[in-house]
Amino acid sequence: MPFATTPDHVKLYYEEAGSGTPILFLHEFAADYASWEPQLRYFSRGHRCITYSARGYTPSHVPDNDSDYSFEHMRDDALALLDHLQIPAAHLVGLSMGAYSALQVGLHAPSRVLSLTLAGCGSGFEAERLQAFRDKCRADAEEFDRGGSEGVAKLAGLMPGRIPFLVKDPRGFREFHDALAQHDAAGSARTMRGFQGARPPLSEFAGALQKLALPTLIIAGDEDDACIESSLFLKSHIATSGLAMFPKTGHVLNLEEPALFNATLERFLALAEAGRWGPRDPRSIRV
């Protein structure tokens, strides 16, 4: 099994397919490397596609302490994987937790990024909801500790933003939910406390976002209430960004609407690679 080792000696399991310009896929909290399979099968026809399980998600290693799951660790893990594969720069495609990590790579090491795709990014963003979001993360982590993998699936699998997937595609949702029930509960709890419940809100990076010059695609589902405001915030602060809103869609964008996700991403990558995804023309901004 292929593993990359991080600077703090955590082993990350990864898979890759195809050849060409690299795309690195970063998964959400309730997923792992395998959740990007619909994208690997499609984009590996013309790109080198890499997906990996974050720390705390088997077959990757599960560090013992909450402090090993900070947003900086997650950011640096993506860079460590690029280093291991000797990839100077890649397109980064992230969903939710993975989108936040991809964004942090873009802010911290923009030379390693060809473009950013930020899907379902920024839960808990609103100032009036932030403390409640963090409190829920801590409560969920305690439930994961008590309830094990079944507790992870029960809480994380049936959050409001996942219900559209359940309604629209029960078969696909069952597969997603069954995979979630196999997660390492300790890793999920530590990720919930160390990353989800402790990461800074996007608003703390407002100044840095305004300086970001990477081609950026933001994707949100119109029934993913937790990520609509944050997606609009990203759009308004990143001059080189575009926003795609998927109708009647929740949080699990790449699995709930794989064909639409792939088509949207494909168009963006083609324009980014052609140098045709630039900053917004100031003349188009309402004053």
Rank of each mutant, 00 (worst) to 15 (best):
L130H: 13
A139R: 14
L85E: 11
T249H: 05
F195I: 03
R146C: 04
D8N: 14
S44G: 10
P59T: 02
L130T: 13
E16K: 03
P279S: 01
T191Q: 13
S111D: 14
T6H: 11
F133S: 13
G221K: 07
P63C: 09
T51G: 01
E143V: 03
F195H: 02
D64Y: 06
L260A: 15
A179P: 00
F173N: 01
A213H: 13
R280L: 15
H84W: 08
Q39S: 05
S115G: 01
R267G: 10
Y52D: 02
W277E: 03
L92I: 00
G147W: 04
K211P: 00
G221T: 06
E72D: 14
A30Y: 02
Q196Y: 09
A119F: 00
D8T: 09
S44L: 10
V105T: 10
D64H: 13
V252W: 02
S67Q: 14
R190G: 03
V167R: 15
P2W: 12
S230I: 04
A259R: 14
L95C: 14
M97I: 07
A54R: 12
S44K: 07
E150T: 09
F43N: 09
G94R: 01
F176P: 00
Y52N: 00
T216F: 07
K211Y: 01
P22R: 12
L85T: 09
T51C: 14
G148T: 07
G120W: 05
E16I: 00
D184M: 08
E143S: 12
G242M: 11
T117G: 01
T51K: 02
I50H: 12
A141W: 10
I23G: 04
R280Q: 14
R162G: 09
P160Q: 01
A17G: 06
R286Q: 12
S241G: 13
L212Y: 09
D222Y: 05
A272L: 10
L118M: 08
H108L: 12
M192W: 12
T58F: 02
E15I: 08
I238N: 07
L26T: 15
K211A: 14
H61L: 12
F205N: 10
A99G: 14
I285M: 11
G120P: 08
A185W: 09
M97P: 05
K11F: 01
A272V: 09
D64R: 14
R276F: 07
V287W: 08
R55L: 00
G207E: 07
P2F: 11
L40K: 13
S19K: 14
G151R: 10
S96Q: 04
A99H: 06
L212S: 08
Q210L: 02
E223F: 03
P59G: 06
F125N: 10
T216A: 03
F246E: 01
E256K: 04
N65T: 13
L180E: 08
Y13H: 15
V62C: 03
L209I: 02
D140R: 15
L271C: 11
S44C: 11
A109Y: 07
A153F: 06
G56Y: 11
F25D: 00
H27S: 07
M97H: 05
N262A: 15
D83P: 06
N262W: 02
S188H: 06
L40M: 15
L116S: 06
M192K: 14
